[in-house]
Design a protein around this nucleic acid. Structure first.
Lengths: 137, 137
DNA sequence: TTAGACCTGTGTCTAAGACACAGGTCAAGC
DNA sequence: GCTTGACCTGTGTCTTAGACACAGGTCTAA
């Protein structure tokens, strides 16, 4: 299987497959012509990687998990501990995005009723510089 | 004013100031000793940059805005149009994070009751590979 | 004058691929 | 057999917004 075949068969891009290959998450054989040749084992490996990515694991996490399982050990404890970490991060980012979204949408609606002003020596844009979010009561 | 003085006075890091300087958002004079010397104008410029970053503008956005205002034009129309774009992106990312958070927390609670399994030839980790989110009713 | 503490600019690194590009492959047509 | 063109390949570079490493400069106290 060539890189694009593999990618399409699992609904991803050739660049993504190449990326994982570069990091040695996938270890294709070399064809005579220098092209990389992916076996069925790589297919299921890639399937695993994509599932894990979809669940929020980083590529580095996945590398760890694969290493563990290649040693014959159960990766389950590692997997549980990693997802706990990632979930905490996701929660933080989520809260940050929530706040940002509120700020932005508040700014947008305020600004639509405000007039344009030319810049002055100490003011680039009054919309931004005078913005203060109305705190939730 | 030296880079760290400026940074601390506005609650940011020297690296951030250096970054903006590299991109020529700030244009300090050169001291005799080669150190960068920031004037009061740079202070208010940096203040503006930090406000805009805080509202979700990218550094490239801010560069555009500053350029516009340096030409004496009002940056307000640009600012409104940029924040509309950024808000849409933020909304998308927010929804993605919301979904991801749900998936992850669902996975975590499922997995806590599941046993460890050793890897097999076609299974790296059954937790991940057998995970299916229970769709919201 | 010298020691040490602190500060500086420059260069490199990060995540997870996307993109550019020079060259190779392969089937169709002659 | 040869050639054309379409498509594919691997490698290298680029992206964000800074953080970090580091060699060397500055500055204060002794």
């Amino acid at each position: 299987m060539k890189v694009t075949e593999l990618a399409k068969s699992l609904g991803t891009t050739a660049d993504t497959v190449r990326y994982y290959t570069r990091l040695e998450l996938l270890k294709p054989a070399k064809s005579v012509n220098g092209y990389k040749s992916y076996s069925n084992k790589e297919v299921s490996r890639l399937k695993f990687i994509l599932s894990a990515r979809n669940l929020g694991f980083s590529v580095a996490d996945i590398k760890q998990i694969l290493n563990e399982s290649e040693d014959g050990k159960s990766a389950c404890p590692l997997v549980r501990s990693l997802i706990k970490e990632r979930l905490e991060e996701t929660e933080k980012q989520f809260q940050a995005m929530l706040a940002l979204r509120g700020k932005m949408s508040s700014a947008l609606s305020q600004w639509e009723e405000m007039e344009d002003k030319a810049p002055t020596a100490n003011m680039v844009c009054h919309l931004i510089e005078n913005f203060e979010q109305i705190k939730k009561a």
